[in-house]
Amino acid sequence: MKPESALVLEELRSKLRPASVAQVGGFRPGADPLTSWFLKGVCLPGEGLPVWKGQPMFPLIQIRTDELPVIPEQLKGIALLVLFHNREHHPFDQPHGEGWLIREYATLEGLELLPELETPYHPFPVRWVSVNDDAPGWEDAWDIIDLSEVNDDTQASDSFFDDFNRYGGTKVGGYPMEIQHSVGIKDFVFQVGSEEKVNWMWADNGIGYFHRSAEGIWQFSCQFY
């Protein structure tokens, strides 16, 4: 490996991010509904399930922020959020509220279980594991570092892909896990993976990415194989 390339990779190591990675199932769920779950969620009294095209949407994932070992800046002031998805199709490239929706709650006080809705998916509780070495993918990394030296060095290029950890699946914080191309680092908050236990899949084993702007606007994108 060329010395110049090694220096670039060393700089990249200084830019690794912490993240909260989801552990789905494998432990006995508690009785408290105000915790992180796939396919279960809570709401305010009388709020119920959100509706899209006349049909109720289901809670894909509920995230309680004080359970996260790493809390992104965008979630400060949010005690709990629930991501809803419609039952017809994935709303690729659609704005917030069009087939998908995120509800935010500043406090846990007064929240109650959502009505149950029949879906082909399986509810599972979520625990969060802390990691400190999440690396960006190839295209997203160019937004934080010049990889020209690495691009021209085969050994360094191999090291970029082989010697850094990139966490797929469901996680909060860190960097989005690229599948096809750049996802976008700016305002990235969390991703939801294709979770086998839940029986949930984005197209062909994909990942859904969720960004939140400084103004509080959520955006959704998805990549798959």
Rank of each mutant, 00 (worst) to 15 (best):
L113G: 13
E116S: 12
R64M: 03
I102L: 11
D140W: 03
V131H: 12
Q62I: 00
L113T: 04
L101V: 01
E104P: 08
L68T: 14
W100N: 09
E118V: 05
E104G: 03
G173H: 06
L39Y: 00
D163F: 05
P95N: 11
C43L: 08
L49Q: 10
F84A: 12
P69S: 10
V172A: 09
V51L: 07
G168P: 09
L117P: 02
W138S: 14
P45T: 02
H90N: 15
V131Q: 12
P45K: 14
L111W: 05
E104T: 02
H122T: 02
P95Q: 13
L80G: 01
I145Q: 14
F160H: 08
K171R: 14
T107L: 06
W37I: 07
V150N: 14
P72T: 07
Y105H: 11
T154R: 15
L39T: 00
A156R: 08
V70Y: 01
F160I: 05
V70G: 03
G99S: 09
E47Q: 13
G46R: 15
G169E: 05
G54V: 02
G41I: 00
V129K: 15
P45Y: 06
D140N: 12
P95Y: 12
K171S: 04
G97D: 00
F84Y: 12
P120T: 04
H96Y: 10
F58T: 00
Q155L: 14
L80I: 02
K171W: 06
L81I: 00
I78Q: 11
D162G: 12
